[in-house]
Structures are given as structure tokens and as C-alpha cells.
Design a protein around this nucleic acid. Structure first.
Lengths: 236, 236
DNA sequence: TGTGATATAGACCATTTGGTCTATTAAATA
DNA sequence: TATTTAATAGACCAAATGGTCTATATCACA
């Protein structure tokens, strides 16, 4: 009995276009180093096959009706089988590329790409690398930087002199920290070993400095202006 | 008098290592298509030269004492002169690469890279593209995905059945929305054209459903669990 | 030495908040 | 049709919150 020396990589295909699906299967079979263990025309079916066959890599079409590809990535990753996901799409939609990579796709290729490049992409991903064609990398970064612009300016504000949080004394910061946890005056007093009245005094000073009227607004101001940056941060 | 047909690109160098600085200047001068309009050995000096000469591109060393390179990127971009910044570093530190790209560097190259590649990187950046060597792109994405993992699982929770926010009725959501703005019962009542008592009833129901005891906790729960995702979101 | 900032705390009071219970109406659904 | 859910609202009460004013002790710094 003959034994193969190089183990074939197990591939699963998910794409609602059956033509395309068959085409890729053909391509990968011809290549010889891949073993297409299953094909699915929708996410639900795909997930089931992933559970059943535990493929090394999944080629996942992004543009599918009902449950979209992004959801598919999330659910496959949730299975924690170490399955690598290569996203497949007809369009170089920056938002889609960004989100796919963000939620853990190992690569993103266009359907219009040459077969050889698709094979290369799969191999890279199988080797534990990220694969993005140069054109898509550019699109990705454009979007990436654009989407962080807001946060950047917000973080600058957080460092700004205008940031009223900087007016707070150390003790006031401690009190605010506890306020943001929804603790009562009594609770804060106990935690800081001071009287409830003192807490109230601090809180009143905090309100004046932050120019707000109640704890909810103070907490919101804190969150929106860089307080608690270690725990919480505003993003895109 | 001879006139040049192709306008040279104006380059500014910022690096605290003078040897290295001189080397790059030499390289770029030899190349002939660049005009090194200035060199600086620290950020402050660099910023001033940027203001003065308004170069097309700045090669900025990341690893400098005192004010570091990241701060330099921020400040140069704040000038809004359209200056492209190419970050330069001795190390392929993933966190540094990520942060540099995040705050708007157009590229990141290692000092160990071949001269030809540096030139190529500068040209790409000048052409409005992002340039990251493949090796650094991989490092970037590793870090990118890792740093979004937390957010991802949090966002999954946000969609989860366990998310208590899903228990809320439409009206309760409206009330909660207003609560998160720090509005009093009276205020909410006016906005929704219902009585204060009704607001209180809704709020009580919200507290029970979210298993909290006061508005601050309710607001925090809301923020941390995907409510207001359009306006605010929790990140790394 | 004295001035200012910080942390502490009491008194007093009005307002707001939160808890509980009951009740009516409309709409959806079994 | 009967039942459930959602939205509305009143009554009553205790607890928490917020506002204002006053006062003391420390510490740093001019």
C-alpha cells in the first residue's frame, strides 16, 4: 500500500455561486496538494461541514445573502478549531476588507485574481501567514487610517489642556473612578475610608470642574474624554 | 540658464543618529531625484524645519529619546501641510508599527533594509501610497488581530442571547437612550410626552431587566454591551 | 510667615431617585 | 375569545443625590 509523504491540506469551500464553487474545486484538485473535503452554498451548511471535517482552511465568499460572510468568520472562529479563513470576494470594498481582517480572516482575495495567486494565497495562509494582495493592503490602510482619524483627534483632546479632567485633583480622580462604577456615596466613603460628607464635597467639586450636574453626566464625560483609558476607550 | 524638467521631491530627515542621517542624505543626493531640504537630530528641531520648508516627505526615526517618534507623527500631521511621513526604525516592534500606522504614518521601513528598498518606499509614499515591507505587514496584522480579539468577543456578547439589553422593549430602549445622556425623569417625560411616573415605571423595568440598581450602572451596562454602538464602542 | 491648594467633614434642605403596589388601555397572540 | 405583553399612570415612602455654606488641618511654595 502506498503512503503519501506530504499530507494534503484539507480545504472547505463556501460560496453561494455553484459555478464558482465547482471551478475552484477543479482548480484545487488539479493542483494536487489540496484535498477539498467539502463544499457548501450557504453559511449554515458551511459551519456544519467545518464541524464535521475540521478543514485546515476555509475559502469563504463574503457576498452571500442572509447571513453574510462576516458572520461566517465569527462563527467559524468561535468553534476554536484553528481553522484558517481566507475571505473571497468579488469587490475590493474597503469596509468589508477591514472588517474581515479585524474579526480574524487570515487573508482576503478577489475572485478576479489569477488562479496561481489564489493558490499562493492559500499556501501562505496555511503557513500561518496573513495574505493580502498589495492592492487590497492599500485599500485596507486607507480605511484603517481614515477610521482612526476621529479617534486620534479625540485622543489628542484627551491629552489637551482643555480637557477638564486635568483640573481634577488626585483624590477627585479616585472618587470619579469609583463613581464610574456606579457606587453610592456610602460605598465610596467606605472604600476610601473617609466620611460620606467628604465624598459629597469631592463630588460637588468634580461636577463644577467638569461642568456637569449629575453623576451620569460626569461618568459620560469621563468616558468620552480619556478617563479610564486603560479599561475603556472610544473607537470608530 | 538650465531648467530642470522634473521637479525634485523635497525630503526632510529626522534622526538623532547623525551618522545615519548623513548616510541617508548622501544616498538621496546621489539618487538625484530628491532634494534633502533639511536634517534634524530631534523632534522639536524637525517640526520647526517642517514648518519652514514644507517638505513633501519626512523620514522620521521612531526611536529617539525625549519626545518619541509617535509624538512627532502626531505633531507633523497636526500642521496639516499634507506632509507624508515615512517612519524609520531599527526594530520591527509590532506595537510601534501598529501605532505609527494608526496615527497616520504613510509607511514604515527598517534601517537594516537595502538602500534601493528605502528609495522605493519613499517613492511609493510620495505617490500617495502606503508602503510596508511584507515582513512588517505580517507583524502588523498579527498585532492588529490580536488587539481586536477582546473587542471581537465583546461584540459577540453584544449580539448574544445572554445580552440583557435584548430583553428591553422599544419604549424602554428609548428611555435608556435618554438616561445615557444624563437626563432626569422630568426631562425624559417631556421628551417622550409621557408622565414622570411612566418614566419611572419604565426605568424600574429597565433596572430589573439589566439587573442593576441605579442609572449609572444601567448606563455602564448599556455602553459595555453594545448599546449606542453607533455613537460609542469599546475598544482595546 | 502667610497664602493657596488639597483633603477632610458637619449642617441643612430641596430635589431626585428608586421600590413597591395597583390599575387601565390597546395590541398582539394563543 | 381569553390571555399576555406593552405602555400608560397614580400613590406613597425611604434613600440617595445635589447645592450651599462653613470650618479645620496639612502641605507646599512664595
Amino acid at each position: 500500500m502506498r503512503r503519501e509523504f506530504k499530507k494534503k491540506s484539507r480545504v472547505l469551500l463556501i460560496d453561494d455561486n455553484y459555478e464558482h464553487l465547482a471551478g475552484i474545486r477543479e482548480l484545487l484538485n488539479l493542483e494536487g496538494t489540496f484535498d477539498v473535503v467539502g463544499i457548501a452554498t450557504n453559511i449554515t451548511m458551511g459551519i456544519n461541514l467545518v464541524k464535521k471535517y475540521q478543514p485546515d482552511v476555509v475559502l469563504l465568499d463574503m457576498n452571500m445573502p442572509e447571513r453574510d460572510g462576516l458572520q461566517g468568520i465569527i462563527e467559524i472562529n468561535k468553534l476554536e478549531l484553528g481553522t484558517k479563513i481566507l475571505a473571497l470576494s468579488g469587490y475590493d470594498d474597503a469596509d468589508l476588507i477591514f472588517r474581515a481582517m479585524k474579526i480574524g480572516a487570515k487573508g482576503y482575495v478577489l475572485k478576479t485574481m489569477a488562479s496561481a495567486q489564489l493558490i499562493y494565497a492559500i499556501e501562505e495562509v496555511l503557513n500561518g501567514k496573513i495574505y493580502l494582495p498589495n492592492a487590497l493592503t492599500s485599500r485596507f490602510f486607507e480605511y484603517f487610517q481614515k477610521s482612526f482619524q476621529e479617534e486620534n483627534s479625540r485622543q489628542e483632546n484627551a491629552r489637551d489642556e482643555e480637557n477638564l479632567l486635568n483640573e481634577l485633583t488626585q483624590r477627585e480622580e479616585e472618587v470619579l473612578e469609583l463613581l464610574t462604577q456606579g457606587i453610592t456615596y456610602k460605598g465610596v466613603a467606605n472604600k476610601l475610608f473617609i466620611s460620606e460628607t467628604t465624598v459629597k464635597t469631592h463630588v460637588n467639586n468634580i461636577f463644577q470642574k467638569l461642568q456637569v450636574n449629575d453623576r451620569t453626566q460626569a461618568v459620560l464625560y469621563a468616558i468620552n474624554n480619556g478617563f479610564l483609558t486603560k479599561r475603556i476607550k472610544i473607537a470608530v
